[in-house]
Design a binder for these strands. Structure first.
Length: 234
DNA sequence: CTCCTGAATT
DNA sequence: AATTCAGGAG
């Protein structure tokens, strides 16, 4: 029985990764989506955005995010007003999630209070409701940490690149996480467009705008040349 | 691995 | 109407 090599570079060699990074960021420069949480330096607002975005469209989150962040500037303020938080989140639906968000706020408030900055040593995955994906987004933004964010959409990109049948559980597979980590290392070692958070955003936007779940727009894709799935369409 | 849950998609 | 989605937790 053949065993697939588990290293990222064996699936996508280093020079291909470099080429993908260059093309991806060129595309991102003109195609990026702009949302308020992408420019905030407020760690609490950034976390809240990621929680709201779970299972919810970005455009729907935008107005709620604006209202929420005006009302609550830090975790302590939000924790003092759980009813108001519920009210702010209500239009997003998913009430079970809102209960969880309140618990997350409570933990953040108790642990970090109203402090403006988090220490770079903080491990946010110890916070209830925050896992690897959210941690990577927040740490890459706040500390330029070279952590690849892997949600189902980004996992889909890596599966298509390497012609592996996609399944939502793929985002947890060791070979995919290794590949994503390798790509982040290659990309951040580049001399330009090497901001880890921007690289995470570029992949998210490519997944949302081009490498869609069904009917991907391979013709418009900046990395079709390097994608095994895209190559089949030529 | 399975479960959660209701919006989005087909 | 039926299926898919989606990070996190167990």
């Amino acid at each position: 029985m053949e065993r697939r090599s588990k290293t990222g570079t064996s699936l996508l060699n280093r020079s291909t990764q470099k080429a993908i990074h260059r093309k991806l960021m060129g595309w991102f420069a003109t195609s990026r989506r702009n949302y308020p949480w992408r420019t905030t330096q407020n760690w609490f607002h950034l976390i809240m955005a990621e929680l709201m975005l779970r299972r919810t469209r970005s455009d729907q989150v935008a107005s709620v995010y604006e209202s929420f962040t005006k009302k609550y500037r830090n975790a302590s303020q939000a924790n003092l007003d759980p009813d108001g938080v519920q009210e702010e989140l209500r239009s997003l639906g998913l009430n079970w999630r809102n209960e969880q968000i309140l618990q997350t706020i409570q933990f953040l408030s108790h642990t970090f209070g109203s402090r403006r900055r988090l220490q770079a040593t903080v491990d946010l995955t110890e916070t209830p409701g925050i896992g690897d994906y959210c941690n990577a987004m927040v740490r890459s933004k706040l500390f330029q940490d070279t952590l690849p964010a892997i949600d189902s959409n980004i996992a889909r990109i890596y599966c298509r690149l390497t012609d592996v049948k996609f399944h939502p559980e793929m985002r947890r597979k060791a070979w995919l996480r290794q590949l994503a980590a390798d790509f982040m290392q290659t990309a951040t070692a580049s001399s330009s467009n090497n901001d880890p958070f921007e690289i995470n955003l570029a992949l998210l936007d490519l997944a949302a705008l081009v490498c869609k779940p069904s009917a991907p727009r391979c013709i418009e894709c900046p990395i079709q040349k390097h994608c095994k799935t895209g190559q089949k369409k030529l």
